[in-house]
Nucleic acid binder design. Structure first.
Length: 228
DNA sequence: CGAATTTGACCTGCGC
DNA sequence: GCGCAGGTCAAATTCG
C-alpha cells in the first residue's frame, strides 16, 4: 500500500466543546457538528486537561470518549503545504449553510474544515468513491462560488464522495470556498466504521513524527446513533 | 475487463 | 402551491 510516512504532517484532535490549539497545529478552521454546531470559541478547555484517552494505544489514543454523546474526531493535519485560515469564516459559512438551506444537522456526525490547497481532494487515508458532482449557481445560498472569469453568474462545483469501503456510509463533500477559491472546504458526514488503511494515532500532547496520510478522521462514538 | 469517474436526470426539502 | 437549490442515482464513458 502506498502509505509513505510523512514527517510534515501535523496532528490534532477536535471534539465537541474543544478548542484546538490553532497555532500549534496550524488549524483554526474546523467545525465539529454533532447534533448541531460546535464553535471554536465554545470552550477553553483543552482535550489534554479535560481527559486523557482511556484505553488509548501505547502510541496514542483511539478510544477517547467525550463528555456528551461520545463525539470524538481525530484529524490528522495535512502537510505543510496546506494552511488554514480563520475559524470564523468557516463557521459563518456553515451556519449559513445549515441555517438557510436544508443541510441541517440531523444527528449525524459532521466535521467540516477549510484548507488552503490547490488540490480539491486530499488523501485522507480512506478510499473514496465519487458519486456526484453539482454545479452551483451564484446565489444567496452558501454553496455558491465565484468562478474565475465567469462573472457574477458564476457556478461552483461541489463534489460528492462516499467511502468505498463496504458497509461504510461516510460521505465527503468537497467544494471550493466561494470567498477564496484557493481554499477548499471539506465536509465529512458520518463516521467510519472501519479503520483507515493508513491510520496512525498519536497522543494529543505529542507532535507526531509521521502520519501516513494528510487527513484522518475517526470517531469513537457508537455508530448506532448515527447510522443511516 | 473491471473499476472508477463523469454527468445529466430525478427526487426531496425549503423558502417565498 | 410553485420554484429553486441541494443531494442522489444510474447509465455512459474513461482509464488502468
Amino acid at each position: 500500500m502506498d502509505c509513505p510516512e510523512n514527517p510534515n504532517h501535523y496532528y490534532s484532535y477536535f471534539r465537541e466543546g474543544f478548542d484546538p490549539p490553532a497555532t500549534e497545529f496550524q488549524v483554526s478552521d474546523y467545525l465539529v457538528l454533532d447534533d448541531g454546531f460546535v464553535e471554536d470559541e465554545s470552550s477553553s478547555q483543552s482535550m489534554a486537561s479535560s481527559e486523557q484517552v482511556p484505553g488509548g494505544s501505547p502510541t496514542g489514543y483511539s478510544g477517547a470518549t467525550s463528555r456528551n454523546n461520545g463525539m470524538q474526531v481525530i484529524i490528522t493535519m495535512p502537510p505543510l503545504d496546506y494552511s488554514i485560515t480563520t475559524a470564523s469564516s468557516l463557521i459563518s459559512y456553515l451556519k449559513c449553510k445549515n441555517g438557510v438551506k436544508k443541510n441541517k444537522i440531523e444527528g449525524g456526525h459532521r466535521v467540516a474544515f477549510r484548507t488552503k490547497s490547490e488540490l480539491e481532494v486530499m488523501d485522507d487515508g480512506f478510499k473514496w468513491r465519487k458519486y456526484g458532482k453539482k454545479s452551483v449557481k451564484n446565489s444567496p445560498n452558501p454553496r455558491q462560488q465565484l468562478a474565475p472569469g465567469s462573472g457574477s453568474q458564476a457556478t461552483a462545483c461541489v463534489n460528492y464522495y462516499k467511502c468505498s469501503s463496504g458497509g461504510c456510509d461516510v460521505k465527503k463533500i468537497v467544494e471550493r470556498d466561494r470567498e477564496d477559491s484557493t481554499f477548499v472546504i471539506t465536509t465529512y458526514d458520518g463516521v467510519h466504521n472501519h479503520e483507515s488503511p493508513c491510520t496512525v494515532y498519536y497522543n494529543y500532547n505529542q507532535m507526531p513524527m509521521a502520519v501516513p496520510h494528510a487527513w484522518t478522521l475517526q470517531d469513537s462514538s457508537p455508530h448506532s446513533s448515527s447510522s443511516s
